[in-house]
Amino acid sequence: MISNRKIFLRNSAPERSARMVENVFRCKWSLTVYQLLSEGINRPGEMVRSVEGLTTKVLNECLRKNMEYGIIKRIEYNEVPPKVEYVVTPFGKKFIRILDELKELQNEMSA
């Protein structure tokens, strides 16, 4: 007699975190932004000047997307002219560590 009872349940990937990783890798500039922030380059104009091919429009889209996920945060200073800086959040530090682990895994697979 055949039983319809399932022995193994299919576990799906965590929906939100999987989408976040997918969106970060879809934006080719996110990893560059993380690298810039780790080197202390945290002002948008300085970021654009530091990377060939990066435009202000694309950078702003990338920064906005990363802020929505809570990976980076915007700090606005009440000055004239306006001053804005971006920093990695504590959650963002954890997320970037995971991306570093993925890079190490890729290196092991390539070796």
Rank of each mutant, 00 (worst) to 15 (best):
M1E: 06
M1Y: 09
S3K: 07
R5W: 03
K6T: 08
F8A: 10
R10W: 02
N11Q: 08
S12G: 07
A13H: 11
S17L: 13
R19L: 14
V21A: 12
N23Q: 14
F25W: 09
C27I: 12
C27Q: 14
K28C: 07
W29G: 00
W29H: 03
W29D: 00
W29M: 01
L31G: 04
Y34K: 03
Q35M: 13
L37F: 06
S38H: 11
S38W: 06
E39Y: 06
G40A: 12
I41Q: 00
E46A: 13
M47H: 01
M47Y: 02
V48I: 13
V48E: 05
R49F: 07
S50L: 00
V51M: 04
E52L: 13
T56H: 05
T56C: 03
T56W: 01
V58R: 09
V58M: 10
N60K: 15
L63F: 01
R64C: 02
E68F: 06
I71V: 14
K73T: 11
N78F: 10
N78W: 10
V80K: 12
P81L: 04
P82N: 11
P82T: 09
V84H: 03
Y86V: 00
V88E: 03
T89V: 12
G92S: 07
G92Q: 05
K93F: 08
I96G: 00
E101L: 15
Q106H: 07
A111T: 05
